[in-house]
């Protein structure tokens, strides 16, 4: 068999999370999976991350919840979700049929709630990991308030570590002074993987009526506009921690994904791009395969953190 036709292996194992490729659907952009059933071959994804789930259902924020901005969009959904029990009963059985690893994004408004949700999800076969949301900017309690203080991060992650034997991925907020201190806290508390970044807090104003364009006043910015910031943060964190990183932030094509991998991400998540192009994940998976083949690179792992930085200086 010719080298050219050799099947490229895209599989990755990040912190115990085994995936057939490093392309995941990001939380909040893929619903509970079923919404995209008709539009995306879900069984081809590396993993699927559910909408953020809490102990009890959340009704979410008042409308308008969305506004497009140049190169991105602001959202303030407010973590509307059906609660962990309904997730297990109504959504997981349907999701299982795809054979794609399911990662549940969890959040709480108290430390105890985080632990409780993790405990309930532990031991369910189809669920292969937890993503801990300490970074949602759109709810008043919980979420980001846990994600901006290194001590709180340590407490939340420790709590979940005790409650669950599943691989734990901690999703970091970019709305902090130094993301690496938060990353280090999560690592010390026992996180297996870090995913970053969540959305950047922003706002938009209707000047005719002098009112905010979002019901929640502020919202989280996502899309191509945030990619340079996300890349910089992945690179910073990669240089400070020893656990794998999942890159998120404005990935719209293969080259975007490659940039994240080269600066240190072992896998990537695609979010906002799904809304515009439901085939984007498939395109990126094929694109990564072609890139590895064309550049004679054996595995994704060989590419992770392969960024070459200038070593000389002019005095």
């Amino acid at each position: 068999m010719k080298q050219l036709h050799k099947k490229i292996d895209l599989s990755v194992d990040i912190g115990g999370l085994k995936m057939r490729n490093p392309v995941m659907a990001a939380s909040g952009t893929f619903g509970y999976g079923e919404e995209y059933e008709e539009h995306v071959p879900i069984d081809h994804l590396g993993a699927l991350i559910t909408k953020g789930i809490s102990l009890k259902p959340h009704s979410g924020n008042p409308p308008p919840r969305l506004v497009e901005t140049t190169g991105g969009m602001l959202n303030a959904i407010g973590l509307q979700n059906i609660g962990v029990k309904a997730l297990i009963k109504e959504k997981i059985p349907n999701l299982m049929k795809f054979g794609t690893p399911i990662i549940v994004n969890v959040f709480g408004s108290t430390l105890r709630e985080y632990g409780e949700v993790a405990r309930i999800l532990d031991g369910i076969d189809a669920i292969k990991g937890l993503e801990v949301n300490i970074s949602c900017p759109n709810i008043k309690r919980g979420g980001i308030s846990f994600g901006t203080d290194p001590r709180q991060v340590f407490k939340v992650v420790s709590k979940i570590r005790k409650a669950s034997a599943l691989p734990i991925m901690v999703k970091l907020s970019p709305n902090v002074t130094d993301i690496t201190t938060i990353a280090r806290s999560a690592e010390e508390a026992g996180a297996d993987v870090l995913s970053l970044i969540n959305t950047l807090t922003g706002m938009a104003v209707d000047v005719d009526n002098r009112i905010p364009k979002l019901g929640n006043i502020t919202g989280g910015l996502s899309g191509p506009a945030i990619k340079p910031i996300a890349l910089r943060m992945v690179w910073e964190v990669y240089n400070k921690v020893n656990i794998p990183i999942v890159g998120i932030g404005g990935i719209f094509n293969t080259y975007d994904a490659l940039e994240f991998i080269i600066v240190g991400a072992s896998a990537i998540q695609i979010g906002t791009a799904h809304f515009i192009n439901p085939s984007v994940a498939m395109e990126v998976i094929n694109g990564l395969e072609n890139y590895l083949r064309d550049n004679h690179i054996g595995t994704i792992q060989d590419l992770v953190g392969s960024l070459e930085t200038p070593t000389f200086s002019i005095l």
Partner: peptide
């Protein structure tokens, strides 16, 4: 009428009370 992002029910952005 509502602003929408995904159009398929995934993002919950077009919520109507």
């Amino acid at each position: 009428e509502s602003r929408m992002a995904c159009g398929v029910g995934a993002c919950q952005g077009c919520a109507v009370p």
